[in-house]
Design a protein around this nucleic acid. Sequence first.
DNA 1: GTGTATTTGTTCGTATGTATC
DNA 2: CGATACATACGAACAAATACA
Lengths: 85, 85
Amino acid sequence: MIDRTGPVAPYRQVSNEIAARIGAGDLAPRQRIPTETELCKEFGVSRGTARNATAALRDLGLVVTVPHRGTFVAQHGEQGAEPAD
Amino acid sequence: MIDRTGPVAPYRQVSNEIAARIGAGDLAPRQRIPTETELCKEFGVSRGTARNATAALRDLGLVVTVPHRGTFVAQHGEQGAEPAD
DNA sequence: GTGTATTTGTTCGTATGTATC
DNA sequence: CGATACATACGAACAAATACA
């Protein structure tokens, strides 16, 4: 869960957590990160907040979102790459 | 963009601009006006301000908002009308 | 080809906290 | 204090593309 008493916005806490997993190799390149709905359940946030979190990761170039497929860990700073399969 | 130095509130500037487009026929009856998000981008305002602007247009009877569909130019002073399609 | 489930995209409704004038 | 603005958040509904049986 997230901390709603601190100064860090919920969507930031979610994106930070996912970024940490990527950094730790818990989520490998080309691997799909949790779906928006899964993030909702896992962190107890709304879908809008989950979307904000993935958008933040996208801004960082850490992930690439493929419409109707999912959001995947970028490989070495790839923004417009192809998860291909 | 809008003028933040003058006496006219930003939401008023936005609603005035949209009203002008309607008056000029740039936005025709039954046509959808820019979404709240689009107004945010176009005028550089927050969504709350965009909402205030569309609410002002609604008060004037110039537009009709359909939940989850959009906000449409009213036909000849219709407030509770149906964009139908 | 059809139907269903999954997943992201989009849009409006609403509320809260903070800041400015 | 009130009006306005902004960022963030939650909720709800529908659209569209994809995947699979």
